[in-house]
Design a protein around this nucleic acid. Sequence first.
DNA 1: TTAAAATATGCCTTGACACGTATATACTCC
DNA 2: GGAGTATATACGTGTCAAGGCATATTTTAA
Lengths: 135, 135
Amino acid sequence: MESFEIIAEPNRRAILSLLVSSQQSVGEIERQLHMTQPAVSKHLRVLREAGFVEATVDAQRRLYRLKPEPFEELDAWLARFRRFWSEHVDALERHLDRMDPSTPTLAPPTKKKAKRNRRGANRGNNSRSRNHDRS
Amino acid sequence: MESFEIIAEPNRRAILSLLVSSQQSVGEIERQLHMTQPAVSKHLRVLREAGFVEATVDAQRRLYRLKPEPFEELDAWLARFRRFWSEHVDALERHLDRMDPSTPTLAPPTKKKAKRNRRGANRGNNSRSRNHDRS
DNA sequence: TTAAAATATGCCTTGACACGTATATACTCC
DNA sequence: GGAGTATATACGTGTCAAGGCATATTTTAA
């Protein structure tokens, strides 16, 4: 499975959040999240195979803890979009006396008929990006 | 649908990546990603309802562009884990002569078989956190 | 009005995956 | 050895979402 699908699952995110504070055994996770033991084990397996966590053996227990690499990968993808929301935050924190008229939030029923600029749309971009995404 | 599930879909991530450069019409996205038109429209609907994109009308076209809020949300979640991989990156880039001793990178892999501490395991922690994950 | 273009939507099928129950494996202590 | 504890795995089931195909809707142009 792939990093983005991994964190799409709420229980897996909960497990990861738990492990931020410290390493935990399967049983501890089970109790804190009210999940059945097999459920926890299965999620941990997924997380382990994706590199989100690793385990060390302590008698019959497995102590799981976070690994950084997949998070870096996620962050690297998010980074492409960071300028957008940082601009946005700036706009919020500052007086948004700018906010130029390019904020017609989702098709303001522009009855205006948007007449004649059909052909003039910007393009310069035939990048042939792949279907399977780059991540 | 929810932000993490949204970006779990490779085609949706591809669409978002496309929109970083500039706004695009459905047909343009369709051609660049070799997807069928209904597929593109459906994904755009999901993205729109989740607040990732918004559209303006241009004659029969819809020009889609990014919106920042959901990305902020994703980043906020990732932020919890950031110290982990930033430590890791620092370790890579070396000169970790700073990084004051607040870097007990989670339980140094005590391979020692940890014989006798079955009963003494840490627990102090019955936090009853919810099943449905936080954020 | 009719045709064509651009986009959205509905229906259906298929596959993935999360869950529960039961069971298997591993380790420890008596 | 056997019992108990901790974790992993196998199997069957239900749900849900992505994709394809057909069609509806909206707008432009003739």
